[in-house]
């Protein structure tokens, strides 16, 4: 949608530029290392998986990339309609606007991403209202449409999220984030804690939305099976650093780094 008004020439040119670029990103918690010296590019329409065990710095990296945590060192650049914006050099008010129009973040714990005391419709409409929509009927119409798009029953529009199941909450988070049609989506362990059939349907939904909306996605997961289903490319993290990077099937089927080999071999097979 960002390229629709201009010539295909520009679309072609834009495809050659990453939508997101991290340059030597480091974040420290006092003496402890969250992530250290991570550089990465995310390309239009790409799903980048970040795998690693608990405490390897995945979530810290995701928070830094998605604008929620200013890194101790390094830069995060976002490309928007041909201009490159340095995320943490922007004034905070500008960054916030950018975050809610260009970026979506789906958290593992839905409580972090959803207002539990506000109805599903209010949650989905929140970004639209922040962007100035002041028409109740249109807000509801958008919310209803998005409930359908993420396969939630529109009859539950006025229900509070605390009455939703875990899988429904993740769908609600996705709807809430995608309602402003951002180009970047960050997923933090989106399927953890869901049972396998719910996981499978959620992954299907995500894959469909990524294709339909031409989203670029960074997904953090410890579950290699989820990475295999969704990711095009993988980063393997250990101790805050990227130890291996490559196409998803190359990394999973021919792991090079000893840690990646360990990770792949310790996967449970049902």
């Amino acid at each position: 949608m960002a390229f629709s008004s201009e010539s295909s020439n520009q679309a072609e040119w834009a495809a050659k530029e990453p939508v997101l670029r991290a340059v030597r990103l480091s974040h420290f918690y006092g003496q402890r290392v969250g992530c250290a010296g991570v550089s990465l590019d995310l390309w239009p329409g790409e799903v980048l998986g970040i795998v690693g065990e608990s405490g390897s710095g995945k979530s810290t990296l995701l928070r830094c990339l998605s604008g929620w945590q200013e890194p101790s060192q390094g830069r995060v650049q976002i490309r928007r309609e041909g201009e490159v914006l340095d995320l943490y050099a922007l004034e905070e008010s500008v960054r916030r606007r950018l975050l809610r129009t260009q970026i979506g973040v789906v958290f593992q714990r839905a409580e972090e991403g959803v207002r539990m005391r506000v109805s599903a419709g209010g949650n989905i409409g929140e970004r639209l209202m922040a962007e100035g929509m002041r028409h109740y009927g249109r807000l509801r119409e958008s919310a209803r449409r998005w409930m359908e798009r993420v396969e939630l029953d529109p009859a539950r529009l006025d229900d509070l999220p605390c009455t939703y199941s875990g899988g429904m909450l993740q769908r609600l988070q996705i709807a809430k984030n995608l309602v402003t049609e951002p180009r970047l989506l960050f997923l933090d362990e989106p399927t953890t804690g869901l049972d396998v059939s719910v996981q499978a349907r959620l992954l299907d939904l995500l894959r469909r939305l990524v294709r339909e909306m031409n989203l670029s996605v960074v997904m953090v997961t410890h579950d290699l099976a989820v990475a295999r289903v969704l990711a095009h490319r993988l980063l393997v993290m250990m101790g805050g650093q990227v130890v291996e990077e490559g196409l998803m099937d190359r990394v999973l089927d021919d792991p090079q780094h000893p840690y990646t080999q360990l990770l792949v071999s310790s996967r449970l097979v049902a």
Binding site: S93, R96, R115, V118, S119, G121, G122, G125, E126, R127, M129, A130, E131, G132, R134, Y136, L139, R140, L157, D158
Partner: peptide, 17 residues
């Protein structure tokens, strides 16, 4: 920043309920 979208979430909830 006159970023008052959140006030409307409250109004929305009122009307929805």
């Amino acid at each position: 920043w006159a970023d008052y979208g959140i006030m409307y979430v409250k109004l929305y909830e009122d009307v929805a309920r």
